[in-house]
Design a protein around this nucleic acid. Structure first.
Length: 773
DNA sequence: CGTAATGAAATTTTT
DNA sequence: TTTCATTACG
């Protein structure tokens, strides 16, 4: 980055050298914000402020780590508390747990856990009366918590049908968590915020302890976070907030843009510093971004400028289909990489929704381009990992009912719904946790002896796992997977997915081992659980790998890449259809695109397709309204694949595809013509011999793919034979050892260069045959 | 009690 | 298209 070599500008120096009193740093994209913040911390230390009096709060672990390492470099040996809001609050809550009705060993529920807890509550209430999906109720409660609204007040203000149901559920949900000695993500903030508000003594002592508070990404703070930052900055009002209203993209998660817009009202004597010079992007990219964001009303105007070159024009390209789009982008990347002009890691491809990654992924795979996807289902969210962790959670916090219900019959041990219901009833009657109820299984009259024995066995197993005091986490996990039968049940399975699950558990063991090495002190189990529940997938991004990066626009915040592609610039996607009716939400979509655009250092390429397959259906698209807001003079607009010839071909092609598709559907619904693969192959010639395919030279999917979707792949599964060399996107090259299973469930066992052989369901797997030369 | 089968729904997701 | 959750069956 250029900025590191620059001297501080006047504005930067002003922010860095500010010591006492509130400070707002309005930092445009690429303006060297992190540098300013870290230098300011170093400056404070230089001015004699004790490291223990400084706390810097970020939103992501990645941001916290980044700052940590840069502060370490500037001020070696000083231990400034740099952490995410949530981790900071978790730590404080361990200290003050009793003040909010918790014990120090409380469990932190992630989104999935809290949804389970909520469902338990809904089950107890007459759930049929509420036809709202749990997600919506959960979102309503979460919003309330973020706004610091407690159940009583929420009930008073409930108006709509949804909120009145949420009002009914909220207090019970809250009680359920307290009973389980657990908190959800929102609670971490809420408990600390209410603690600061209702316990003046504690607030004062914390305010005194953290005299210099820095908050990063202030535009994304919600009311709870605001209250925490405020509560720590009354006696020592040295709050330094950094942020950019134009990069606020989490409004839907409760962020209050007014926090930053009204900072100066909150702190009338605040000093405001604007960092408007951009060191990241070319002049043209910055101009495009500025022109776009100028259409927003809810903002503080900034005058973004740069001394960088004007660079190449920003490209806006229309393609005939999403497939053309993906192939053209990938082909361009391949050309740049093979010519040595760029490395794969220079490229990033952003999209609005995860579902859009598929087309790009398959194109990247076809071209053999290595990529990393920063996406949804991250490691610690996987079922098998959550299962194993639930055992640890229950060991650490025996009152954790969510963990109990998760593992009582995982792996299956013959404890069914009715048994669990009986346990719940007993637990409710005597007001004890489920695990305690399970210990008394023999005394529960409604429970058949057979069931009671099984429950007793489960409890005995759990006790055996937790026998030793404070063992290494790795040891504990090993005992869990052995004694619970989890490992055996996966080993016995023949499904490829389960083999993968085993591998994931191995990975968890590795993570535990590393954790143990770094945390020899007691209490490591709790620390490990806290760690795992507070990490996220964006943390997984590895900047060092030489791979193309794929991610959503949201995940892109805070990163930068030499070449950025933003795909699917279509109405309904950017802006997303669900944000079209609310002006505020529309502005947030614009900010989201602004964030994406400003990630680009030297090249920016926007694209869209006139036809896109989405959710199994191919549809005509409408260009994004934001396209009309971009300054054409800075750009190169082209429509390579919508030239007349291609149009005609594409139209003909799609007509054909539609016919195929309808035929397939009819056969399916009629139920009389099944998709016998052999039959199908006879009617639809395989790829190579399709005339259409050769004329499009790999640009389009084959008619078979397009027409029949999964049927196209069904035909493929017969291509796999013993001894064949295949390519897997992650494991690389491997050899097919055996092919087994009937026509519809063909499996291949593949030996890769490392590790045990893996099994794959051939019908829908990522294996690609490698053509022999 | 466990599995197979059917059907409705489908943003973004710092923690 | 895919994913999930609930339901129906063995």
């Amino acid at each position: 980055m250029t900025v590191r070599t620059h001297m501080l500008t006047a504005a930067q120096r002003e922010a860095v050298e500010h010591v006492d009193g509130p400070l707002l740093i309005l930092a445009g994209p690429g303006s060297g914000k992190t540098r300013v913040v870290t230098h300011r911390i170093a400056h404070l230390l230089g001015e004699g402020v004790a490291a223990s009096q400084i706390v810097a709060l970020t939103f992501t672990n990645k941001a916290a780590e980044e700052m940590q390492s840069r502060v370490d470099a500037l001020a070696p040996g000083k231990r400034v508390w740099l952490s995410t809001f949530h981790r900071f609050c978790a730590r404080l809550l361990r200290e003050y747990a009793s003040c909010v009705g918790l014990e120090p060993n409380f469990t932190i529920y992630d989104a999935g856990d809290s949804r389970r807890a909520l469902k338990q509550v809904l089950d107890e209430l007459d759930r049929d009366s509420s036809f709202y999906p749990p997600e919506q109720i959960s979102a309503a409660i979460s919003k309330a918590k973020n706004r610091l609204v407690l159940p009583d007040d929420y009930a008073k203000s409930a108006r709509s049908p949804l909120t009145s149901i949420a009002a009914e559920v909220y207090p019970r949900y809250r009680q359920r968590l307290l009973d389980s000695n657990a908190v959800d993500f929102d609670d971490l903030l809420l408990h600390v915020a209410t603690l600061l508000r209702s316990e003046p003594e504690i607030r004062r002592s914390l305010d005194d302890r953290f005299r210099y508070v820095l908050v990063d990404e202030y535009q994304d703070t919600n009311l709870a976070q605001y209250a925490i930052a405020r509560g720590l900055s009354i006696d020592h009002p040295n709050l330094a907030a950094t942020g950019d209203p134009d990069q606020s993209i989490y409004g839907w998660r409760g962020a209050t843009l007014s926090n930053i817009l009204e900072f100066e009202k909150d702190f009338p004597d605040a000093r405001v510093v604007r960092l408007e010079q951009n060191y990241r992007s070319t002049r043209r990219i910055l101009d495009v971004a500025a022109a776009l964001i100028a259409h927003n009303r809810l903002r503080k105007e900034k005058d973004l400028f740069t001394e960088n070159d004007e660079g190449q024009p920003v490209q806006l390209t229309a393609y005939a289909t999403h497939k053309h789009e993906a192939d053209a982008i990938v082909a361009g990347i391949v050309a740049d990489v093979t010519s040595g002009r760029r490395r794969a890691r220079d490229f990033a491809i952003f999209y609005r929704v995860n579902a859009l990654s598929r087309a790009i992924e398959s194109s990247l795979r076809e071209h053999g381009v290595a990529y990393q996807m920063v996406n949804g289902l991250e490691f610690f969210q996987r079922k098998e990992v959550k299962d194993v962790l639930a055992y640890l959670q229950l060991l650490n916090n025996p009152r954790d009912d969510v963990a109990f219900e998760r593992i009582i019959n995982t792996p299956p041990r013959g404890i069914g719904r009715t048994t669990i219901t009986r346990l719940r009833e007993h637990a409710a009657r005597y007001r004890v946790p489920l695990l305690a109820a399970a210990r008394e299984a023999g005394l529960i009259e409604s429970l058949p002896k057979r069931s009671a024995v099984k429950v007793a066995q489960f409890v005995a197993m759990l006790d055996a796992v937790g026998e030793t005091v404070d063992p290494p986490v790795e040891t504990l996990i090993r005992r869990v997977i052995e004694l619970s039968g989890y490992r055996d049940s996966l080993l016995a399975s023949e499904i490829e997915e389960d083999q993968q699950r085993l591998a994931n558990i191995e990975e968890l063991l590795t993570a535990a081992r590393e954790f143990d090495a770094q945390h020899p002190e007691p209490g490591r189990l709790e620390a490990f659980l806290e760690q795992t529940s507070l990490v996220s997938d964006t943390d997984a991004f590895e900047a060092d790998d030489d791979r193309v990066t794929l991610m959503t626009l949201h995940a892109a915040k805070g990163l930068e890449f030499p070449v950025v592609h933003i795909v699917a610039m279509e109405q309904g996607l950017i802006p997303h259809e669900r944000s079209l009716d609310e002006p505020d939400q529309l502005e947030e979509e614009r900010r989201l695109l602004f964030v994406g655009i400003t990630r680009a250092q030297s090249e920016l390429r926007l694209s869209y397709a006139s036809r896109r397959e989405f959710r199994g259906q191919s549809r005509m698209t409408v260009p994004s309204m934001f396209q009309a807001e971009l300054p054409v003079r800075e750009m190169a607009v082209s429509e390579p694949d919508i030239a007349l010839d291609d149009w005609a071909a594409a139209a003909q092609y799609h007509d054909e595809a539609d016919v195929w598709h309808d035929g397939a559907d009819d056969a399916h619904t009629a139920g009389d013509i099944s998709f016998d693969p052999d039959n199908f192959e006879a009617e639809a010639p395989p790829r190579a011999s399709t005339p259409m395919d050769s004329s499009f030279a790999g640009k389009l999917v084959t008619a078979a793919d397009m027409a029949a979707g999964s049927a196209g792949r069904t035909a493929n599964e017969h291509e796999f034979v013993d001894g064949m060399t295949v390519l897997h996107p992650e494991y690389g090259l491997g050899q097919v050892v055996t092919v087994s299973g009937g026509p519809s469930k063909r499996m291949a066992t593949v030996q890769f260069s490392a590790g045990p052989p893996k099994k794959f369901m051939l019908r829908s797997c990522v294996l690609r045959p490698v053509k022999a030369k």
